[in-house]
Write a protein that binds this DNA or RNA. Structure first.
Lengths: 124, 124
DNA sequence: TATAGCACTATACTTTTGTATAGTAAGTTA
DNA sequence: TAACTTACTATACAAAAGTATAGTGCTATA
């Protein structure tokens, strides 16, 4: 069975919708996950590079979030076999596809702010 | 200026992206928000109706989540002027538009699960 | 040999989020 | 009048999420 028809089949059951949303929420929830994913959308990075690009995150949190993202199949961790050892984090296929979700959120967020402003202007 | 051109203007600045995503995350994060929004996608509902449709949520949590959703401009709370007083919750314009975000999450979630299963089958 | 960078881990703590349970004020029905 | 429904609020607590700070083991460079 092709992936497309598998997807169509799964979509018939509404319970799957809830599970699917839960899976997506898992992937992006937490204070730093979206920042980390966004940073990796520009290409693979090392621990310290992510730390710099994300900002005020401390190593304990970064380590924890990276582990969760790896466990959820959003990023992969690869040890380059050179000396000194270099560890590179990058998005998986699924991880890259999260961009669509983020884009939907950006579109909604921008529209939402414009609608709110409009309502403020027109009294209430 | 039209909303569309306002949106285009805002989109030029990448900082707005982060704010937009944050706003969207605010709208849906929390254990019960997605359930509540999903329940209201089928039409306006009263407190006890939402409580039934969402499941094991307790009134303290439902009350808190509804207040946050109202504050964020996702739902509106309307007091019907009949006796006995009926209070109805419904999605705002913005709230309805969240469906697109949820749909993107559903699509991603289903694809993600299929990809994960495929990888399990093909060893690792 | 000392110092620095990398990729983390350990410990202790604070804050936020969620749960359990009971109670209240107002109106409705038997 | 008593019991019931609706739409919550109050109090106390448990669990999860996040922060601050220090330390470890490794390699590389001065």
């Amino acid at each position: 069975m092709s992936i497309d028809s598998k997807i169509k089949e799964v979509k018939k059951c509404p319970v799957q919708y809830v599970l699917a949303i839960q899976e997506a929420m898992n992937a992006i929830q937490g204070k730093w996950k979206v920042h980390i994913i966004a940073s990796l959308l520009f290409g693979p990075k090392r621990f310290s590079e992510i730390q710099k690009s994300v900002g005020r995150i401390n190593p304990r949190m970064l380590s924890k979030e990276l582990k969760e993202l790896e466990l959820n199949g959003i990023i992969k961790r690869e040890i380059q076999n050179i000396s000194p050892v270099v560890i590179e984090y990058s998005l998986t296929e699924s991880g890259c596809k999260l961009k669509k979700v983020l884009d939907a959120m950006i579109d909604w967020g921008i529209e939402h702010r414009v609608i709110s402003l409009k309502k403020l202007k027109h009294g209430k």
